[in-house]
Design a protein around this nucleic acid. Sequence first.
DNA 1: TAGCATTATGTTATAAAGTAACACTTCACA
DNA 2: TGTGAAGTGTTACTTTATAACATAATGCTA
Lengths: 130, 130
Amino acid sequence: MTKRGEQMRAEILAVLREADGAMSAYDVLHRLQASHPKIAPPTVYNALAALTKTGRVHRVESLKAYIACQCDGTHKLAVLSICDGCGTVEERTAPRLVENLSGFVEETGFMPQRHVIEVHGLCSSCSSNA
Amino acid sequence: MTKRGEQMRAEILAVLREADGAMSAYDVLHRLQASHPKIAPPTVYNALAALTKTGRVHRVESLKAYIACQCDGTHKLAVLSICDGCGTVEERTAPRLVENLSGFVEETGFMPQRHVIEVHGLCSSCSSNA
DNA sequence: TAGCATTATGTTATAAAGTAACACTTCACA
DNA sequence: TGTGAAGTGTTACTTTATAACATAATGCTA
Ligand SMILES: [Zn+2]
Ligand SMILES: [Zn+2]
Ligand SMILES: [Zn+2]
Ligand SMILES: [Zn+2]
């Protein structure tokens, strides 16, 4: 919340936005070491946690990596398409699909709170170059 | 493929089947150290990789952990319900849902190959005890 | 069956990812 | 200005995972 912290989060968000694909926390760390020589892992992880909590960043679970949000806060409905060729990650919202998924797990009395929907494959440009 | 390896895989699968919830690779490792004092991480990771490739085990991406397959080989259509209360992971197949998801990502020319669908929340018994 | 190539497996050592615990800073409010 | 709550940073460490190489099993050739 303070200036220092918010600035760190803004820098990390900028780094993630510039990136082509997802970045690991340590990718981010090494990138920041140019401007912040003494930065340590927890600083990055703290900032990523704060950014994730406010929906500005998502962790890509199946890549152990992070992306800047591309869906402007509707991240609870997000589907990630992960290209295993070029590493790009596209985020799109799919309210209907998430609703169906919730309904499906609720059939057994399960109470859903957070959805992880990640699809690996090839993006259109990688699959045409295959 | 050889006897030694297949036996290791069978043991690991048995350990995972006995477990209540998902186990980390190191949980499995420590469990096996009782019977195999000199076992090392790559042995476990190799076996888990082989078991995963043949669909007998799944990695729960959002838990960095592993479960024995509960769906008998139809794992490409699986949805995991992960209880954050008691740690149980239930696997159910949802062909229709996966088909819809594939259709959704294909709208942008993406070619899906592997689906990760994990829902966090509370199982029926944990949510009634809440 | 012996010799050799091929593949699978195990071991050592190390890298990558993540976090606990505590010290420090900031800022609101008395 | 003090005091405390909240947030942030640092040190040191744990957990997760893999590269590289050594070893062992398998199956083919002769
Ligand atoms: Zn988003
Ligand atoms: Zn691509
Ligand atoms: Zn399965
Ligand atoms: Zn539960």
